[in-house]
Design a protein around this nucleic acid. Structure first.
Lengths: 338, 338
DNA sequence: GTGAAAGCGCTAACAA
DNA sequence: TTGTTAGCGCTTTCAC
């Protein structure tokens, strides 16, 4: 491998000039720049990442701590990941992938200066990783919202507002008995931030709108979804509006309703909280509140990069939910979206 | 951040002693080791990854080039990824995630010495990435099988044998007209290695077993699956055995068959090629040839690490397919698995 | 607009 | 069993 000195020699300039041509941190005359660039091409020179990191304290790598966990929808995770990786490249950064079960990895990558910044997904209310990264020297953005962010930046869909919006939509359509078919029990037991926030919004709006709301946890399997539906209709037989916040279970919930002869969009209004592509690939187009997973991933990178550059203070960004009506819900007289 | 010199000073030893305590590359007396370790703990010392990489030409990072592509099943990809990440940690390595659309990334990470080795997924017959990594100094393992591996190691399920096995199973059960519902058109157009190999095995065994085999590409959407089923039954109405090699489409294929009043396991035998958990989460337990995605990911890491350590020559490992009979296929008189 | 040179924090000869 | 020290390849002051 050619080194920067080889390039300097070949171009007849000093090492620092080559370095500055590469970084653009000081003006270089056109002819010099041309000679250096020619030499770089000719030698196929690539700066050594480790050397660069050592000298500059910058790695051009960000860590992404992503869950590979039971109960979360893998395709949705991947949308977040895709957003993060893509946007990171826009900032000339690569992505080091950490998995949830590897909490010691946080120490390793931060303490060892392997990365310039971190993005963490699947945040729990009382997440043990938060104090760890809060103490690190690298800026971190959480996708999700812990009880106490300890000064870290956060970004997520405003699930509380989404819960309210969903109930408002159903109540506006005349439903008085609504229900949530929510995350798997494991997710709830972990006090995963989004699940709890959605429920909070749901309940507060239900009170305001004067509707009842029944909550069912729901495994993502066909049988789990079936039994959630069955239990729900046994416990609260008057339910006419369902909010489904479980991408994996959604198709099975719809199947079970169909099996029971319940026509979605007529007998039962269903609102899904999920990425739009998921909402559209069901047996009938779903009224849904979009979970813009890829977009959130991108915003997370934007935020972390902003903190890396200037002295941006940390902030929390909750994206406003957008509900799109489709075939799965009936629009009532006083629908607030009209 | 404390440096190795700080530790040495605190422990009253030389830098190299600390280094050797860390690496274990030379014997250290118990008391010395204890003093060094105490100092490390007290100072919260973490070796600087960049400095280490510069001095040792080892990064303890491997690159994983994973597809985020249309037509491939995201959950299955993630199983590969999980296998790679998990096993990499066993070798004290982290994983840098590259996406397919980022071919220049190969140059960047290899030329810049950002990684010790690479694992590449979703290999096409004539994959442009292969010559690139073949020229790199880092060892690479391909998950999949290009036309010409150019000296690189490969690992995958033996899809050709899987094709043969599936046909043998169906022919043995007395079926004379079988069909493949395969990958999406995009995957075929890319000449993705696994799709082509499965078809090759299918066709050769069909000839041997004296059965006909119809092939349908199949989009993973509900409507794509429905039309694949419809087209198939229009073109080859005598079909009584179907092999499905498309995780995303599988549930929709089964739904369509059900809609048409065709009872899987009785009127129609269906063999799936997919991970076992996918086979088991269908409406009926599927006879399947397991795609051990996570296992393949692990083997890929084992292979790449072997090449990194000793002077292991490169090799190709094709894992023998295993067919497990479940409810979706009838077992015939001369079934070779009896 | 350009160059010289002092580190960045480690590893691994080489020496003792 | 331990210490000394020369780099690894870059960035960035300082000097011109």
């Amino acid at each position: 491998m050619a080194t920067i000195d080889d390039v300097a020699k070949a171009a007849g300039v000093s090492t620092s000039t080559v370095s500055y041509v590469l970084s653009g941190k000081r003006p270089i005359s056109a002819p010099t720049r041309a000679r250096v660039e020619r030499a770089i091409d000719k030698l196929g020179y690539r700066p050594h990442a480790g050397a660069r990191a050592l000298a500059s304290s910058r790695t051009n790598v960000i860590a992404l701590m992503a869950p590979l966990r039971v109960g979360v929808s893998v395709p949705v995770i991947m949308q977040f990941v895709a957003g993060v990786v893509t946007r990171a490249r826009d900032f000339d950064h690569d992505v080091l992938l950490l998995t949830q079960d590897d909490v010691s990895g946080l120490d390793r990558v931060t303490g060892g200066s392997m990365v310039d910044a971190l993005v963490m997904m699947d945040i729990e209310a009382d997440d043990p990783r938060v104090p760890l990264v809060a103490a690190a020297k690298q800026p971190t953005v959480l996708i999700g919202l812990p009880q106490d962010p300890e000064g870290l930046s956060c970004v997520d869909l405003d699930f509380e507002a989404a819960g309210r919006l969903a109930v408002r939509h159903l109540a506006g359509a005349g439903h008085t008995d609504v229900a949530l078919i929510g995350s798997p029990p494991e997710v709830l037991q972990r006090h995963t931030s989004y699940a709890e926030r959605l429920m909070r919004g749901l309940r507060s709006q239900a009170k305001l709108s004067g509707v009842t709301v029944e909550v069912e946890a729901c495994d993502s399997s066909p049988s789990g979804a079936a039994s959630a539906v069955d239990t729900l209709l046994a416990t609260a037989p008057d339910t006419t509006g369902i909010i489904v916040h479980n991408e994996g279970a959604l198709p099975h919930v719809l199947s079970r309703l169909a099996e029971r002869g319940i026509v979605v969009g007529t007998d039962m209004s269903v609102v899904a909280v999920c990425p739009t592509d998921v909402a559209l690939s069901q047996r009938i187009p779903m009224t849904s509140i979009d979970l813009p997973a890829e977009g959130i991933g991108k915003v997370a990178v934007d935020m972390v990069m902003a903190r890396l550059e200037g002295e941006h203070p940390s902030e929390t960004r909750l994206l406003a939910p957008v509900l799109t009506e489709r075939a799965s819900s009936v629009s009532g007289p006083s629908d607030p979206l009209d």
